[in-house]
Write a protein that binds this DNA or RNA. Structure first.
Lengths: 259, 259
DNA sequence: CACAAAAGATCATATTTCTGATTGACCGTG
DNA sequence: CACGGTCAATCAGAAATATGATCTTTTGTG
């Protein structure tokens, strides 16, 4: 009850930047006193800043919230894809996990059912997930932390990459456009992702159906530079044939994913 | 109440490896049912494994618990030292924070009262603390994650270091022995710490009084390789004069420094 | 300085959570 | 198969927490 309410508060604050206490109380259906108390808590957590009459999200919390939301989008598809990708991992090998939300689900899967592996990643959440898991050795790239998705990027990350080679690369993507190219949201991260491709024997792209036919700002690499694509069942036949024409392997995640 | 009890459970499990439910109930002063429920929760959290009659800590949780305990030890002294060190930071500069628990307190202090800085670290908890803090740019070293304190170590970390130079280095230590050398608990990390010293203009050692006169396994560097030492008020006069003799600056943390 | 809106404090009620006892089910052992 | 020990489920009382109303204090505004 309380948590729902606070989540609703966050959502409204995220949507509206700055909202009055009275507004929030009305929208959520709680008393002014309760909203104030909730805002107090959120303030103590460093999520919001309060002023007379209202409150607004702190800049840091906004990006964190956006990340959480992105993580929840098409969660079932992501879990299904992660499960299919999990089946492709070879024990005792070295794999690379990038910093996307789909790949994060793969990390969760590995945590739930550990396989002896060396895992290289540039994603803080991925590392967090796999730390202290039995049989998993985690190696991180260097770099500057990108707040938006807690990835490590930049020259230092690329330099670290130069010293590594992995058996399998599991790559996420922001968009797979109609021109058969993979696109990303951040320039430096897109460039890093492109470099990753050169340092892996097998290259797998993890992308749910909604990513296909979209576009984003920065080119990562042509789709043909990956060997296999793991998608959920919702992918259109048009795209299936396109991928087949391009000679890229397609792995379809079966059904909905449950624990 | 409940949290205290569960903390007590963890502690007993940490001390005794495997303990019977009846034992735990008696030691903690709760009913069997309560202990079982608590163990259920801890099991769901992945902290313990239960078997008929008792429970034991999972290997991963043990190291995490040890870290938490270490973090709590002499917490007041660490906070006081962190506060004193905080005052020495110059805005707009680039500083290095190592992966120790004292330095982690410094990171907390910076988070509470942000200064525009570029912060380089090899500690995951430090990065976690400073991510998304206004005005702070966080850069991580590469490397393998060491479970015991979530630090990044190894050849990759050292290689990253080669590309960096910072204005100030804030170094923790496991022990400052009578031979006026700094010692560490892990060989690879000790070596990394030694390398850090070469890449900083100012070198500060953060250590509470209890660290002096102790010994540990791996040599980091001679004490004289740091320019200043930040300690709490409890440091003995013997050590004060020793440090003065060695020509090393001493910064004393004011305020509370009791166990 | 006066006014109104908002925030804080206090309190009684409602709700949730926690706890230990009881019961019956489920092992493994002799 | 009987037995001792352990576990899960259920329940009722106790304790903690959440909530909204009311009242007082603070804050911002003209």
């Amino acid at each position: 009850m309380k948590l729902n309410r606070q989540a609703a508060l966050r959502r409204h604050l995220y949507l509206d930047e700055a909202v009055s206490v009275a507004d929030l109380a009305q929208r959520i259906g709680a008393s002014l006193a309760t909203v104030r108390r909730d805002l107090q808590e959120l303030e103590a957590q460093g999520v919001v800043a309060r002023s007379h009459g209202g409150a607004r999200l702190l800049q840091g919390a906004a990006t964190e919230l956006a990340f959480r939301l992105r993580e929840q989008q098409r969660l079932d598809a992501k879990k299904a894809i992660a499960l299919a990708a999990y089946a492709l991992i070879r024990p005792q090998s070295t794999i690379f996990l990038d910093a996307g939300t789909t790949v994060l689900q793969l990390a969760r899967q590995i945590r739930l059912d550990p396989i002896p592996l060396t895992i290289v990643t540039n994603g803080l959440p991925v590392a967090q997930e796999l730390v202290e898991v039995e049989g998993i050795k985690v190696i991180m790239l260097a770099g500057q932390i990108r707040d938006e998705n807690l990835s490590l990027i930049g020259p230092l990350a690329e330099a670290t990459l130069e010293r590594l080679h992995v058996d399998q690369l599991f790559l996420g993507a922001s968009a797979i456009a109609d021109d058969l190219n993979i696109y990303g949201r951040d320039m430096t991260e897109a460039r890093l992702n492109e470099r990753m491709l050169a340092h892996a024997s097998d290259r797998l792209l993890l992308a749910d159906a909604a990513k296909f036919g979209c576009h984003d700002s920065y080119l990562v690499a042509p789709l043909s530079s990956v060997g296999q694509i793991v998608v959920d069942a919702a992918l259109s036949t048009v795209w299936r044939s396109r991928i087949a024409e391009a000679g890229i392997g397609l792995v379809e995640a079966s059904g909905a994913a449950e624990a």
